[in-house]
Design a binder for these strands. Structure first.
Lengths: 350, 350
DNA sequence: CTGTTAGCGCGTTCAC
DNA sequence: GTGAACGCGCTAACAG
């Protein structure tokens, strides 16, 4: 028998592992009120008289009471928590979006629960199933493609859901993001306008990251419409990095020495290429032009400064969180779909 | 009156907002067993006969049952969740550590709850108070300095706590990190060995980030012991960035043209400096040597490649999570303190 | 291996 | 403005 020996333990009460947490009942006793009054003093202070409020605050302080959020959650069918589900935590883009979300939600008293799927829809399904078990206030997930099960569950769930990063029809609920096809098209158009005709696209992870694929498709379509060779594509499957950018750069130059411009799937790759060009004395854009995507701060500090299509990633996170909060706070949610936009930053590398 | 009209609703039962979640009771009824058997089939399958397990699995599947983790948490006094509390989500270091933690914990079925303090101890205290309300399985926090309240609460809490990033005595429970003073000293020693004597330290956020200050102190002490001018310090209060690195570089050169080597507080700053040097045709290390800290992958791709003190950040996260898991799974926790180490990477910039 | 009973700590509901 | 009773959905403890 390992019954807890806490002095104030009500006899017969089950205690877990000898832990004695201060409960709302302890506070109530100390303050000479009913537990529910303590609850109200904490959650809706204006519904409690100043006299009691003071006594309760004092009791809370002396006892060091911390509300059991789990119990509160069970009773009120929900907790102030928002799961955020992203494909990867090693990709800076998602990190910056998470940062925006986290900062916004935490300021409103919500906690962020992190989940990552590795671009695997089954893992996403399992994750969503699991986190819904917490009865969170809402959910933020990445992209518009999900398993049928996830879509069904979330649609019938009745709480706010934001799908982010990508824009499109038929979303579950709310949607913030960019039009990836347009992003790819924008850079392709710019390259054509600059007079380049022999253009290649170089990227990573396009077999599992369909948003990366969409950007390539935007690029591809613009080139085709312009009547130039549009299928020059170099890709690796590893995650993007400076080193893969370097390799892609070298491979493309070797396979296709006549190339005039390189459209990289992101600034990391493009930076790797420029850094390698610097090292080898290859002139950019005279020998070969380079364009990127994202608008990483690094891109402004390279020589030459990188031309890129910038997307406000932190702000996208803030926007996703705001949409959710608007719903939660019952203000009318004006937009159910929000294009966060993208901007071509013409600099020196093209 | 908005009473739920679900057919199988027990009369008189209170329902929240018309939501009808499938409960363990529904599954039990469908499978013709007691609820506890369903619970066991899900949590400890080997304690349930195959016959029942099959029937239960089927019922779970057809009903689409998803366990209410909140209710389970209340009943069993804890949930599989680990709050991770860091100072900032805009600093890459913490992100990489979080990544390691998240990957490790998620693989063992734990969820990561994210909290950030902005280097503010009061916010940390409030956050810890708040997340303990979830009865999480353990907690990971940053650094060894906390409010008395936080330390007391966590010490008497009885569940595993890991303090990370920093190494030292008097921790709450377990501790993984690096010796920041040694990190600073290592680079300073290297610079001296290379023959540099006029050396400056350039950093950011040292007023609020005491770990940054510790690295400077390590640097300072080595220079003093060597009998060279040790108080050359340039600092900004904004967060580190390539641009601040660039500015610091320019300021130091202007204020002190005789400088031979610059010890930057991190690779971001150092990279900003090298990039600016590239642009201006300043030769590194011939005109001025540059050293960094962190071991960012970018540092290997710069020209010249950056000499830096590398710290395995991702691995530190993995290690923190592992320590926690070992405790949770009742394996003897061998080390209660773990030095994750640091490594001087001598490259071209010094 | 399976079931019964009794809460976990709180907030909702309804009465005062 | 305050309180009593009840139950949120699940699992620990104990018995069979």
């Amino acid at each position: 028998m390992t019954i807890a020996t806490e002095k104030s333990d009500t006899p017969g009460r089950r205690r877990h592992r000898g832990e004695h947490r201060v409960t709302i009942e302890d506070v109530a006793r100390q303050a000479g009120v009913a537990p529910i009054t303590v609850s109200r003093a904490l959650n809706t202070p204006d519904k409690v008289s100043l006299k009691f409020r003071k006594r309760i605050d004092l009791a809370v302080e002396t006892l060091g009471y911390v509300p059991n959020l789990i119990a509160g959650g069970l009773a009120s069918a929900g907790i102030r928590m928002i799961p955020v589900i992203v494909p990867s935590l090693s990709i800076l883009t998602y990190i910056e979006v998470i940062h925006g979300i986290q900062q916004t939600l935490e300021a409103s008293g919500y906690q962020v629960l992190l989940g990552s799927t590795d671009f695997n829809l089954e893992r996403e399904t399992a994750l969503v199933d699991s986190v819904l078990g917490y009865s969170p206030s809402g959910v933020i997930l990445t992209g518009l493609k999900h398993s049928d099960r996830t879509i069904r569950r979330l649609q019938s769930w009745g709480r706010p859901v934001v799908e982010m990063m990508e824009l499109g029809e038929g979303g579950i609920d709310m949607n913030v993001g960019v039009d990836n096809t347009q992003v790819g098209a924008t850079m392709a158009r710019h390259l054509l306008e600059r007079g380049y005709r022999r253009i290649a696209y170089l990227g990573t992870g396009m077999t599992h990251d369909y948003r990366a694929m969409q950007r390539y498709e935007g690029h591809h379509q613009i080139l085709r419409e312009a009547g130039v060779e549009s299928e020059r594509l170099f890709q690796h499957d590893e995650p993007s990095s400076y080193d893969i950018g370097r390799q892609l750069f070298l491979e493309a130059r070797e396979a296709c020495p006549e190339l005039e411009a390189l459209h990289f799937a992101n600034d990391n790759l493009a930076a790797g290429a420029i850094l390698e060009a610097n090292r080898r004395g290859i002139r950019v854009p005279e020998d070969i032009a380079i364009g990127g995507y994202l608008g990483l701060s690094l891109s402004e500090h390279l020589t030459p400064r990188l031309t890129t299509v910038a997307v406000p990633r932190f702000e996208m996170g803030v926007a996703a969180a705001r949409l959710l909060l608007m719903r939660l706070e019952e203000q009318a949610s004006i937009a159910t779909q929000l294009d966060i936009g993208h901007q071509l930053m013409v600099r020196e590398s093209t």
